[in-house]
Amino acid sequence: MGARMKARVEVTLKAGVLDPQGEAIRHALGSLGFDGVEDVRVGKVIELELEMQDRNKARAELERMCEKLLANTVIEDYRVEFL
């Protein structure tokens, strides 16, 4: 029986990449009266359930998934964590 583990991948825009969606949200927050919001960046959260035992192996596998599909590393960074 393989153990099941849960992982969360966060994909965010790299620093310096302009985020038009974040900008729109910042404006909307301003119009709702939330002052002092200097910057908003929008990212994605992807949760995965894995049938794996070894956390190090799982992390390496998740990083390969990020490089190959989950993130576009030209404009995005990713972060892997276990839940």
């Binding site: 302009l18 038009p20 969606q21 729109a24 576009n72 030209v74 404009i75």
Partner: peptide
């Protein structure tokens, strides 16, 4: 090369 993102005007 490069990337294509959401239009600047959304």
């Amino acid at each position: 090369p490069g990337a294509l993102m959401r239009n600047a005007g959304l």
